[in-house]
Amino acid sequence: MGEVLGLLFNTAVFAAALRMATPLIFAALGGIFSERSGVVNIALEGMMLIGAFTAMFVSNQTGNPWLGVIGAMAAGVLIGLLHALFCIHYRANQVVIGTAINIFAGGLTVFLLRYFFGAAGTSPSVATIGDVTIPVINRIPWIGRVIGRQNPLVYLALLAVVLAHLVIYKTSWGLRLRAVGEHPKAADTVGVNVFRMRYVAVALSGALAGLGGTYLSIAHLSRFSEGMTAGRGFIALAAVIFGKWTPFGALGACLFFGYADALQMRLQDVGIPTQFMNMLPYVLTMVALAGFIGKSVGPKASGQPYIKG
């Protein structure tokens, strides 16, 4: 028992939890922007995967991982615009298009992997973004060992949560975003361009999910491998719901899911199967939806195409 308690508060576990949570945080923020504008985004998984591939590819071609970050965000924007085009202009079912993007991403990344590198499975190793030490903070006893030395993308993810909160709740753009997701007709009446808001939000969603993928291929690891997101896009989606469509709520959910992820290997040694820890985010999300931990209700117009007139 003491051994298990020791594990639960181990600084190494917390540091690992923060790392595991990072790709989820980016993708979940992406999910929030999209859903807040009224577009359901179950394509986070595919957007992350394409981001992960692009980051690896650009880093491989240029030798500069930061260009990889930019490339991945650009690729995410493109996929986001594709999602937006079909959902907004062609009024296609948003869940169907999300499914199509996920299948598309799975096929495209392996197609390109095999064409450029001749190998199925994994890419060659590429230049990565290295960890940095924050001078003063790393000397604080317990906290320093958790957040004192991490990857720059980890800090960027935490910063992005604060920025997303400010944008959504403290700017007029955020107000319009929320209006478009709750009641597009009313927003339209007072002169908000519903289509443009949704395009921007879904493109931003793609950029953020792409960043999440970036972390996987050129920060956490140094290569792309087939299907490497392994459901993280859906865990991010779960975090959006669990966090009630708010940036800080989603952050809490991502940290918790990351913590469960970081613990799973260690808990296996004390007899808890890893699969049970893997299941946890999904089970908890269903429980949250069912209203046992305070009901999760999404933006009202989420999922509905907007037809002007």
């Binding site: 298009i97 499914t99 299948i103 096929g107 197609f111 095999r114």
Partner: peptide
């Protein structure tokens, strides 16, 4: 030299176009 994953891409494209009946 066409990787077999082409057909996964085509299957996804089919979904895009069927879903966009409006188009």
């Amino acid at each position: 030299s066409v990787p077999r994953e082409l057909i996964t891409i085509i299957q996804a494209l089919i979904i895009f176009f069927v879903a966009a009946e409006y188009l």
